[in-house]
Computed example of a mutant assay.
Amino acid sequence: MTALPGRVTLVGAGPGDPGLLTVRGLRALESADVIVADRLGARGVLDGLAAEGVVLAAEVLDVGKLPGHHAVPQDAINALLVHLAREGKRVVRLKGGDPYVFGRGLEELAACREAGVQVEVVPGITSAISVPAIAGIPVTHRGLATAFTVVTGHDQIRELGGGRDHTVVLLMGIGTLAHAAMTLSRGDRGADCPVAIIEDGHGPGQRVTVGTLATIAHQAALRGVRSPAVVIVGDVVSLSPYAPSAIAEVSPRAAPCDA
């Protein structure tokens, strides 16, 4: 009997804490024949599930990417997903955070569809929101920040508009932190705009460094800040319990009460 065609499910692993994996994502992992996993977020979730006694029968293929070094090129990952699905396997592509937030998820989905492979997406919790949250920093707050932008350290930071009430969340930005801070300080945000760096947000090495656009690069160098880390820029940083008093004095502007 000819095997039924396989399928691919792109699952967002979240920021690395297995407790933040969605129920739908867990069910996909439990029914998978093969899990093609990223390094950040995905590996932490698999290890965490194993530590909690969750047994997954699937074979795990690690295609994890290190900063500056892609263990498996993206085209090869796309081809691997198609190949496994054509063998009739149920494939989970486990990606850190959310597949569609700097995760190249749409590229993988398009490659599968072009090859005639059935594919679906299970969203995940992005570190751009969840990591600031654990440090007490909302990306928006009534009367203080009405919008936020998520960028990477490779994006054109100088093209970002807005002031301190427009939160900037910078992913993969430690290597270019000094340049980003200097560029953002030249705009309406100013050199004294609060900044927070959260390392290893949901991991054992969690650490928060708070400063301003003028000081954060120097502080990060002194503390030996390393990736993975999320950088948050804007007045919302003042709400964090980690913020020093000089920054915490920034308070929400008066706003009308909710109706």
Rank of each mutant, 00 (worst) to 15 (best):
L106W: 12
L56I: 13
G88V: 10
Q74C: 04
S127C: 09
F102L: 09
E107L: 08
V122D: 12
G64C: 05
A50G: 08
G96Q: 00
L84S: 10
K89E: 01
A32E: 00
K95V: 03
L66V: 10
A133C: 12
D75N: 10
V54H: 11
L81A: 04
V54W: 00
L66Y: 12
R43I: 06
A42T: 03
G124E: 06
G136C: 00
E52W: 14
L61D: 11
H70L: 12
I35F: 10
A50E: 08
E108C: 11
P123K: 13
L66R: 15
L109N: 00
G97F: 01
D75F: 06
P67I: 07
V72H: 03
K95P: 05
E59F: 06
L56S: 01
Q118S: 13
A128H: 03
P73I: 14
G96A: 04
R113W: 10
H69Y: 15
P99G: 00
E107W: 02
P99S: 00
I77C: 02
Q118I: 06
L46C: 04
E120F: 14
V117L: 05
E108F: 08
P138S: 07
P138Y: 03
R104P: 10
L61F: 03
P138N: 05
V122H: 11
D75M: 04
N78V: 01
G48P: 07
A32W: 02
P132H: 01
E52H: 15
A133N: 08
A51N: 08
A111H: 06
E87L: 14
V72M: 13
V60F: 02
V101L: 11
A115G: 11
E59V: 12
G53W: 14
G97P: 02
L109T: 13
A76G: 09
G64Y: 08
V92N: 07
I35D: 07
L81V: 07
R43M: 13
G103P: 02
L84F: 12
E87R: 15
E108V: 13
V117W: 04
L61I: 15
G88Y: 05
K89W: 02
G44D: 14
G48Q: 08
G124W: 05
G41T: 04
I35R: 03
V131Q: 05
L46S: 04
P99W: 02
L94T: 07
G44C: 10
V54R: 10
S130R: 06
H69T: 08
L46M: 05
G136Q: 01
G116P: 06
P67T: 14
V131D: 01
I137Y: 00
K95Y: 06
A110I: 11
A133D: 15
R43T: 14
A51T: 09
T126N: 04
A133F: 11
A32D: 00
A71V: 15
V119D: 09
P73Q: 11
C112A: 13
R39I: 02
V122K: 13
V117E: 04
L49K: 02
A110N: 11
A76T: 15
T126E: 03
P138Q: 02
E120C: 10
V34K: 09
V34A: 05
I125F: 05
L94A: 09
A57S: 15
V101P: 05
D33L: 09
D98N: 10
P99H: 01
P99M: 04
L46V: 04
H69A: 11
S127H: 06
D47W: 13
I129D: 01
Y100V: 06
G48D: 09
L80W: 10
K89D: 02
Y100R: 12
L66D: 13
A85H: 05
V92T: 04
